[in-house]
Design a protein around this nucleic acid. Structure first.
Lengths: 339, 339
DNA sequence: GCGTGTCACTGACGCGCGTCACTAGCCCGC
DNA sequence: GCGGGCTAGTGACGCGCGTCAGTGACACGC
C-alpha cells in the first residue's frame, strides 16, 4: 500500500552540522555525549535542535561499521511446536536485554538444519542465542565472523552443557513435589509424542525423578501419551493396572495433560479421584475446563535474565552481576481441580 | 570505556584477495556474481577457494552502508495477549520473505506506545511491518530515515485502511456460514474481554454480520464473554432468553469459546443441543475436550504472502505478482462436536 | 601503422560514522 | 615577552564494501 517515495536522501550528521554551524565532529560528540569533551551548553543546544528539526537518525550500518560493534542480539528460535507462551517469552527477553542497552530480535527457524549464514550475514548481531542444537561448524563460522554465540540449549548434547536445564528440572520438581505433598506415592510421567520437545521433556522428567528419589519413592513410570483420546485411554489403563497402581501423573505440558484427561473420560473415570494430573504452561483454556487443570507456570522473566547474563558474559563485559543464584523460584504451581 | 582486545581481526575481502592473488575488486565481482563482467573460471575458483579456506563472511554493516539497502525486514509485534499460533505465523512470514531474498525478524513490543527509534536505529531494516497502530510521527521519522513502512494493521483507525481485515472477515464469515448451513437462524457473537484484540475482533464480527445479512437473518447478538465460568453463564442465559432465542454463537477465538462452554456446563446445559459454539484458532487442546470444539483455522501462509506482497511493493520493486486474488480460501472450518 | 574492440583486471571514491590528533584563541604566572 | 594550560572546536583517517572509470595486453581489419 503506502509507497515510500524515492529515498529522499538520508539526513546525515553532516546536514545537522551545517544547520547548527559546527563541524560534523562536534555533532558526533554532542549526540554521543562524549565524556571527556567539554561542550558549552549553547553549542549543545544548537546541535540538538538542528538534529531534532531535521529528524536526524544516525545510520546503524555506519555506526556498526565504525565501532565494529552492534548492540543487536539475535535469538534463533527452532522449529518448535506451537507454544502458548512463546510471545511472552520473547517479550521477557526483549525487556531483559533492554536493561543492558541491547536490542533483542527473534528469528524463527523454518527447518531443523537451516543454514544460518544468510541470517547473521544480513543482520550482523553482536551476539546470537541458539535455543537448540546447531552444527558446530556453523557455530565456528559465526564466531569467526566476530559474533558471540551463546548456546542456551536444553538438549544436553549441545557443545555447552545446557545451563538452561535447571529451569525445566525445577518445573518437573514442582509438579512432583505437589503430588507427593498431597499424598501420592506412585507417580507416572506423560511423555509428549512430539520428538522436537525432547530437550524440554528430558530435564522435566529428571526433575520428577529427583523429587521421587528425595522422598524415597520409586521412579515415575514413563509412557508416551498421544494427542488422541482412545490411545491416551490405553496408557491410562496401563498406569492404573500397575501394582501398586499409579495414582498421579506429571504431564509434559498442558496439552499432554489434556490428552490424559481425555483418556480418563473415555474410560468413564475422572481426575483427581481415579488419577491426579498436573500439566505445565498454564494454557489459558486449562482454567476453563471441567475439571480445571492444575499446572505449573514458568518464571519467564527470571529465565530471560539468566539468558541475558550468559550473553553479556560472552560479550566480554566485565562485572556481570553474578551468573546465577536467582532467589526467586523459577516455577510455581497453580493448583486447580485435577489434583 | 576501555578497548576490548581486538577480537581475531575479521577476515575481510582484502584477505581473500591477497590469498587468491587478485585485487579486492575482483573478489567483490566474483562473490557477487557480477553480471556484465567476464571472469575466467580459473580466477573464479581461486577466489572462491580462498574465501572458503579463510571462512570469509562479508560484513553486513559495510555492505548495507555501501549499497544503502539492507535485505532485512522487521516485524513489530504488538503487546498482544498470548496467541497459540504466533510461532506459526512468524514461521510463515520467514518462509514467505525468504522466497523474495529477504530476511524477516520479529520484535515483540513490550508496551503499547513504545518508542521505536532505538529499534530501527540499531537494526536499519529495509522495511518495517507494523501490525498495529503506531503514532504517525513515528512512522514519518522512519520513512525519513529511508525505511519503507507497511502498516499491516487490523485496526481500521490506522493511517492506511487495513487490507488485512479481509482475512478476519473471512474467518467470521466461515463461522457464520457453517452455523447457518446446519440450520441455525439466530446467531450470537462472543466478544473477547481483552481490549487489545479489538483489531481482530471487529472484522471477524463484520464477517459474521455479512453472512447473516446475506442469508436474510437478523444481525448477531453481541455479548462480551469474560474468561470466567460464572459470568460466562450469565451471558449464555441472556442469549437463550431472547425471543427468538439464540441457538448458536460464533466466538472470537477458542479461548472465548471455551468460556462459553464453561458457562453452559455451569447451567447444566451442553453444546450443541442447547447452544452451538464455534471458535477460531484451532488451539491444540480444543480437539481433546469433551465436547470437542468446532473451530476455524487461518491460512497463515496465504496471509504471509499477502504481507510480503505489500512489503515488496513498498520497496519499489516492480512486478509484484498481483496484489491480491488469492484463490485459496484464507480460512477453513474444522467441524467437531460443538456444532 | 593506426584505430577499434574485447578481455581480464585494478585504482580510487564514497557510503556515514567514531575518534585521534591537532590548532587557534585566550588567560595566567613570571 | 614567553611558555604553559585550558577551552572550543576541527581535519583527516579508517571501518569493509560496491562500483565506476579506467588500464594494459592482445587480436583484428584495413
Amino acid at each position: 500500500m503506502s509507497q515510500t517515495p524515492r529515498p529522499p536522501r538520508r539526513v546525515t550528521a553532516m546536514d545537522v552540522a551545517a544547520r547548527a554551524g559546527v563541524s560534523r565532529t562536534t555533532v558526533s560528540y554532542v549526540l554521543n555525549d562524549r565524556p571527556h569533551q567539554a561542550i558549552p551548553e549553547g553549542t549543545r543546544r544548537r546541535v540538538l535542535d538542528a538534529a531534532a528539526e531535521l529528524g536526524y537518525a544516525p545510520s546503524a550500518a555506519a555506526r556498526t561499521l565504525a565501532t565494529g560493534r552492534s548492540s543487536l542480539v539475535l535469538g534463533v528460535i527452532p522449529d518448535w511446536p506451537v507454544s502458548t507462551n512463546l510471545g511472552e517469552a520473547m517479550r521477557a527477553l526483549t525487556r531483559a536485554f533492554a536493561t543492558e542497552g541491547l536490542v533483542y530480535l527473534s528469528h524463527t527457524a523454518t527447518a531443523a538444519e537451516e543454514d544460518l549464514a544468510p541470517l547473521w550475514g544480513t543482520v550482523s548481531p553482536a551476539a546470537t542465542i541458539l535455543f537448540d542444537h546447531v552444527p558446530p561448524e556453523q557455530v565456528d563460522r559465526m564466531r569467526a565472523a566476530g559474533i558471540a554465540v551463546v548456546v542456551a540449549s536444553w538438549s544436553s548434547e549441545a557443545s555447552v552443557p545446557g545451563t538452561m536445564d535447571r529451569w525445566d528440572e525445577e518445573v518437573g520438581r514442582a509438579q512432583a513435589e505437589h503430588l507427593i505433598s498431597v499424598g501420592h506415592q506412585r507417580l507416572g510421567y506423560a511423555w509428549s509424542d512430539d520428538e522436537r520437545v525432547v530437550g524440554f521433556a528430558r530435564p522435566r522428567l529428571a526433575g520428577v525423578r529427583a523429587a521421587c528419589a528425595a522422598h524415597g519413592l520409586a521412579p515415575p513410570l514413563v509412557h508416551t501419551v498421544p494427542a488422541d483420546a482412545a490411545r491416551a485411554g490405553d496408557v491410562v489403563r496401563r498406569w492404573r493396572g500397575e501394582a501398586p497402581p499409579v495414582t498421579a501423573v506429571c504431564a509434559y505440558n498442558d496439552e499432554t495433560a489434556h490428552a490424559v484427561l481425555a483418556g480418563l473420560r473415555l474410560l468413564g473415570l475422572a481426575a483427581p479421584a481415579d488419577l491426579a494430573v498436573v500439566g505445565v504452561d498454564d494454557n489459558p483454556v486449562s482454567a476453563l475446563q471441567d475439571p480445571s487443570l492444575t499446572t505449573v507456570r514458568h518464571d519467564l522473566d527470571a529465565l530471560a535474565r539468566q539468558v541475558v547474563g550468559l550473553v553479556v558474559g560472552a560479550l566480554g563485559e566485565q562485572a556481570s552481576p553474578g551468573p546465577s543464584v536467582e532467589d526467586r523460584t523459577p516455577a510455581h504451581l497453580i493448583r486447580r481441580s485435577t489434583t
